[in-house]
Simulated assay, not measured.
Amino acid sequence: MARSTLLDTELRYVADDRREVTTSVRDAVAAALSTAQPVRRVGSYAGQRHYSGLFWSATTGGHVPYESHLELDRLWLADFDPTVTWIAAQPMWLRGRDGTVIRRHAPDLLLTRADRSLEVVDVKPGDLARRPKVASVFDWTARVCETRGWRYQVWSGADPVRLANIRTLAIGRRPGHVDPDDLARLRAAGKVGVTLGAALGQGPRPAQIAAVMTLLWMGHWTVDLSVPLGLGAPITSIRESS
């Protein structure tokens, strides 16, 4: 399909001030789109097939709605990713022609990166994403995004060990609640190759463990998250304060 036709795809979103905006992919303002409000309501009801709710995001400082456990997993990864500066859920409706077919689709997430680039994400289990009707919608969405230079991802899951570790590190998502003295002492004790337990010392208090989680969540320390997290994990890298 011609690039111009894809750029003319209708794009509707709800602006941060709750205004409904109808534009085209060509004319959409990335800065306004990045903070769009959900275009559809995420609800819950008896007997529903999917698990929905609200995720508190350290990145946005507020709640982001999700419609499934799988979307929740993707939100954890986005919140932990230091290159992601904003997360919007159900950010837009896309409507346009794909050959002889008129398609309409609302992607699941829109991630804004530190370089101000946008990444559109659809979350779907692999077996469902490969179904022809679903795959054709995702293929069209990918081509639409490509015309504007937006990245597009169909996400079907990640390493469960890494996800479990990230959820554990969430204890440290609010550094303002951690004693600065604990952080300073730990940063002085932490060296590449030193284990988390050795950095903590004998008989660590819960507040000190929370400080370790903060250093890991904020990326000041890194450890191997592909294996279960424990006090025996060695520090693999250290980022000095700027």
Rank of each mutant, 00 (worst) to 15 (best):
G193C: 04
G62A: 14
V154D: 06
R104H: 03
D127E: 10
D79N: 10
V64N: 06
R173D: 03
R151V: 02
P175C: 07
R148L: 06
L111F: 13
V178T: 15
F55S: 00
P175V: 10
R104A: 15
K124S: 13
A106K: 01
L118I: 07
R162I: 02
K191L: 13
A184Q: 12
A170W: 05
R95E: 05
P160Q: 08
D108M: 11
D159E: 14
H63V: 13
S68I: 00
P82R: 05
G62H: 09
V64C: 12
L110C: 00
R74G: 00
R97I: 11
G62I: 06
G126F: 08
L70K: 02
A158V: 12
L196T: 09
P82L: 05
T85Q: 07
L109E: 04
H177N: 14
R173N: 07
F138Q: 14
W56G: 09
R162C: 02
T60C: 11
T59W: 04
A142L: 01
D98K: 07
Y51Q: 10
D73E: 15
A164G: 14
R162W: 04
G190P: 04
W140N: 00
A189C: 05
V120L: 12
A164V: 05
R104M: 11
L75G: 03
D159P: 14
L196K: 13
R113Y: 04
I166K: 10
W140G: 01
D115F: 02
V194A: 15
D98G: 05
V194P: 06
D122W: 00
D98T: 04
L169I: 11
E119L: 11
L128W: 05
P175I: 11
D127G: 02
E71Q: 01
P125F: 00
C145D: 00
E146G: 12
R174W: 11
S117C: 06
T141K: 10
A135V: 02
W86K: 02
A114D: 13
R97F: 06
L118S: 02
R74Q: 01
I166W: 11
R104I: 06
D122N: 11
T100V: 10
F80P: 01
L118E: 02
G172L: 01
G193N: 03
R131K: 15
A135W: 07
P175H: 10
R162Q: 12
V84W: 12
E67P: 06
R143A: 14
L75D: 04
K124W: 04
L70Y: 04
Y66P: 00
Q90K: 03
L77A: 05
A189K: 12
L118H: 04
N165M: 12
R173M: 15
I171C: 11
T147Y: 12
W140S: 00
R97K: 09
T195F: 07
W56V: 09
S68C: 02
D122S: 09
D79I: 01
V120C: 07
A188K: 14
A78G: 09
L70P: 01
Y66K: 00
G197F: 06
P65N: 04
S136P: 04
T141Y: 09
V134N: 15
